[in-house]
Design a protein around this nucleic acid. Structure first.
Length: 642
DNA sequence: TGCGTGACTTGGGGCAAAACTA
DNA sequence: TAGTTTTGCCCCAAGTCACGCA
């Protein structure tokens, strides 16, 4: 399937293009990708049944539950007040300096450290060469990290085992080292079984035990999960210090299996107001205390495997993050205003005498049209071999003058971020194709395609076209633009709510395909497909029976009743079919990433308002919190246009 | 100009809670 | 109510990009 941005007429707009140039291959989005047509229905979708269920439940509640109810109402009200409070704060300060206001006071409790290691029970042993072996606590802890991953594919990988064994030996006493020399003779199964049974025990806990645990977590959340910024409560995203374990890199990562050591207060830098320093855990001290209101982090430490910094940051629902999000989408909108000029310019530059400029032009074409990432250079010894646009190598593309009747075909095949494969066969502009042939001439597969280009020079150039413009901005722009365009194209005002949501998901899916957001097919996919098929079959049977009955019936009153029933059945069948199509088409496509990071939420909010779709159907609670700014900003009837 | 570093955003997997079904 | 499926959320790795320094 071709993945390309909606750049409908932009090549045509470039009238300077040479005479015989072929028109671009159509994007893969068909006129109506919705496989199951939907028609208007009575307002009886799942919303109503849910409301009913809830009211049923509440009618069951008696006086002893009234307190609970009251407290939950209070809680909900507080939730709403909190949100409004944040929005008011945002409103008050929105005209202040761009880039968000800087804090004057920042108060928080510091990070929450993971619990200390609890040694294994006496009857749970590590075995070496068939015999039980007692390990020193440190080595035993590292062994448990391995045992926890025993069912995972990681432990079948050679590099993982080599890295683990090397780091594990560092935790052993000289005596242990002398004995344990062969990974193949190590038996972690008892440790693994212990963790399996622990999980089972957790699942089997009583209601009371579970609620006690939940209370504890809520208490931690309250104590460590909130920062006070200039007197305003703001949620913290990740207030927990990452627990020790084995590094699980993605793809063929050279460091997988290395020990991620335990982080201590002595490793942690605290960023807070001078007079509100959180006390370190007893017997410890912080690495450093800082007052830096130019950065967004509250705590930071350096992770030992790759030597990178890790941060404790505010939650996406916070004012600071919201403002940044808003700016990101405003920047993408600005790009939309000059995109035609930019496209004309890079097409012009494909004819430049300078190789550097032609390479840059083709790279921007790729980024714009296929939503490729920038592709920074990276250390090949420290990370998996993945690439983006600027770091593409000749081996990552194939050129076909003609392929299955189409001209100027480029086949991309490379591993991108997270070692996710990007495969796309597309027809490109003739100038692009000719340039690519030139860029590849005389090069080996392992040579860089754009050898005169780096992300730095590319972004420098983009900045000269528009302040703040970067390669990433094209992805945001094209994703949001595609959503808006697809929603316009696919939504039918007469559809049922369910039908409209289906259209939304379809538009969302086009974006996810463009951005190459994939996911592994879930283990239960096949089974749930079978279930749906079974249900469809049953519904069809019911419908058939009802039809037969209708033919027999004479009395008008009974006829009406049956016709109503049939209408209901038909709608249910339609919904089931739509669900089945959605499920199957989404099995390998992740919709959430684009929704969370690339789609201007105001488009979705305005669409919901226009078509009377409750926002809850599109954004769940967390998403609504994150996009509160967009919900507040997009006034009903405004008809927001990206 | 190139490189290293710091600070952030983006990203999919996995687990547990919630919702659904029998 | 128990068992099963789905959804939401947390986790933390892996990108992007700016900046400072030699």
């Amino acid at each position: 399937m071709e993945k390309s941005a909606y750049v409908d007429d932009f090549e045509m707009e470039n009238s300077f293009q040479e005479d015989e140039e072929e028109t671009e291959m159509k994007t893969e989005v068909k006129d109506d990708p919705k496989k199951v047509p939907t028609t208007p229905v009575k307002p009886t979708p799942e919303t109503q049944s849910k409301v009913k269920k809830r009211s049923n439940n509440s009618s069951k509640t008696n006086s002893k539950n009234t307190d609970n109810e009251e407290s939950s109402i209070k809680k909900r009200k507080k939730e709403k007040d909190d949100k409004t409070e944040v929005w008011k704060w945002w409103e008050e300060e929105k005209d202040k300096k761009k880039g968000g206001t800087k804090w004057t006071t920042l108060i928080h409790s510091g990070p929450l450290f993971p619990p200390a290691y609890k040694p294994m029970p006496k009857n749970v042993n590590f075995k070496y060469n068939g015999s039980n072996m007692e390990l020193n606590p440190e080595a035993e802890e590292v062994a448990t990290f391995y045992a926890r991953l025993l069912d995972h594919e990681y432990t079948t990988k050679n590099i993982f085992n080599i890295n683990f064994f090397k780091d594990w030996r560092k935790a052993m006493t000289s005596e242990e080292k002398w004995i344990i020399k062969d990974m193949d003779k190590c038996d972690f199964s008892q440790l693994r079984n212990y963790f399996v049974s622990e999980t089972e025990n957790r699942k089997a806990m009583t209601k009371d035990e579970k609620s006690k645990l939940r209370e504890e977590r809520e208490k931690e959340q309250k104590e460590y999960g909130i920062a006070l910024i200039d007197g305003h409560e703001q949620a913290i995203a990740n207030f927990r210090i990452e627990p020790p374990g084995l590094f699980q890199g993605r793809g063929e990562h050279p460091k997988m299996g290395c020990l991620k050591r335990r982080i201590l207060p002595e490793d942690v830098i605290i960023n807070c107001s001078k007079d509100s320093i959180p006390p370190p855990p007893p017997g410890h001290r912080w690495k450093e205390i800082r007052q830096d209101n130019t950065v967004a982090w509250l705590c930071s430490w350096t992770e030992n495997v790759l030597g990178q910094n890790k941060y404790i940051l505010l939650s996406p629902s916070s004012k600071l993050k919201g403002e940044k999000d808003f700016e990101k989408f405003e920047r993408a909108r600005s790009l939309g205003k000059i995109i035609d000029q930019i496209r004309k310019k890079y097409f012009d530059e494909m004819k430049s005498k300078e190789m550097k400029i032609r390479q840059r032009a083709v790279a921007i074409y790729f980024i714009d049209k296929f939503a490729l990432r920038a592709g920074n250079e990276k250390d090949t010894n420290e990370t998996a071999d993945t690439v983006g646009c600027c770091s593409l190598r000749c081996e990552h593309i194939k050129l076909f003058k003609e392929f299955e009747g189409q001209m100027n075909i480029v086949e991309f095949d490379f591993l991108g971020k997270d070692s996710i494969r990007y495969f796309n066969r597309v027809s490109v502009d003739k100038k692009v194709f000719k340039n690519l042939e030139k860029f590849m001439r005389g090069k080996n597969g392992s040579d860089e395609l754009f050898d005169r280009l780096t992300t730095t020079t590319l972004n420098q150039h983009l900045k000269s076209l528009m302040p703040g413009l970067t390669a990433k901005c094209f992805r945001t722009y094209n994703a949001s633009f595609t959503l808006q365009q697809q929603l316009e194209k696919l939504t039918n005002a007469n559809d049922s709510i369910h039908g409209k949501i289906s259209s939304y998901n379809c538009a969302n899916r086009q974006v996810a395909i463009l951005c190459n957001h994939q996911k592994a097919v879930s283990k239960t996919h096949e089974k749930s497909m079978q279930n749906l098929k079974k249900k469809i079959k049953e519904k069809k049977k019911e419908l058939k029976a009802a039809k037969k009955e209708l033919e027999k019936i004479k009395a008008e009153k009974n006829k009406d009743k049956l016709e109503k029933k049939m209408k209901k059945l038909k709608e249910a069948l339609r919904k089931l079919k739509a669900d089945k199509t959605d499920k199957d088409e989404n099995k390998e496509i992740a919709l959430s990433t684009s929704k969370l990071n690339y789609l201007d939420p105001r488009i979705s909010v305005a669409w919901c308002q226009k078509f009377n779709v409750p926002i809850e159907k599109i954004f769940n609670k967390t998403q609504r919190e994150k996009f509160q700014w967009a919900i507040e900003m997009t006034q009903k009837g405004d008809g927001y246009v990206f």
